Simulated scan of single mutants.
Amino acid sequence: MRYVELIQREAEAVFGNKNKADTWLNQPNADLGDSTPLELAHNEAGYDQVKAELERLSHGFAC
């Protein structure tokens, strides 16, 4: 499975629905160098960054 598809599924699990996940995935994120999570998720290194951010969010840490 491609990294983008994986991160989309993980975001949906964290946010509870596709619309909220899509909004987060497509907005620039200061903690990700002002890139959108989807921009970064196209390779393993970016995927790992975005996944770590989703893990922080799932544990209640705001970004």
Rank of each mutant, 00 (worst) to 15 (best):
R9T: 10
T23M: 12
L40Y: 01
L40S: 04
H42A: 09
P37A: 01
G46A: 10
N26K: 07
L32E: 00
E5D: 11
E5M: 05
N29E: 03
P37T: 02
P37Y: 01
W24P: 06
T36H: 02
S35Y: 12
I7N: 01
V14M: 03
P28A: 00
L32C: 02
L25I: 04
S35L: 14
P37F: 05
F15S: 10
N17M: 05
Q27R: 05
N29T: 03
A45K: 13
H42D: 12
G16F: 15
K18F: 13
Q8W: 07
V4T: 13
E10S: 12
A11M: 08
A30Y: 06
Q27S: 03
A11Q: 02
A13W: 09
Y3D: 11
I7C: 04
Q8K: 15
E44P: 07
N17L: 05
L38M: 10
P28V: 03
Q27G: 05
D22H: 12
L38F: 01
K20N: 12
D31Q: 06
L25D: 01
R9S: 11
L6P: 06
V4Y: 07
S35G: 05
D34H: 05
E10F: 12
I7Q: 02
W24A: 07
E5G: 08
S35H: 13
P37M: 02
N26A: 09
G46S: 05
S35C: 09
V14L: 08
I7T: 01
K20I: 11
L38Y: 01
R9C: 08
L6M: 13
V4P: 04
D34R: 07
K18P: 12
R9F: 08
K20H: 02
N43M: 06
Q8T: 15
N29Q: 03
A45F: 11
V4R: 04
A21N: 08
A30W: 03
N26Q: 09
Y3T: 15
D22K: 02
P37C: 00
T36N: 04
A21T: 12
A30M: 04
T23F: 14
N43T: 08
D22F: 08
N19H: 13
K18A: 13
A13N: 15
F15N: 09
K18R: 15
R9K: 12
D34Q: 10
G46P: 05
G46L: 04
E44R: 13
K20R: 14
A21S: 13
G16M: 14
A11P: 06
P37W: 03
P28L: 00
G33N: 00
W24I: 07
G16S: 15
L38H: 00
G33C: 02
F15P: 10
A21F: 09
E10V: 12
A13S: 15
R9V: 12
K18E: 15
D22L: 07
A41N: 05
E12V: 14
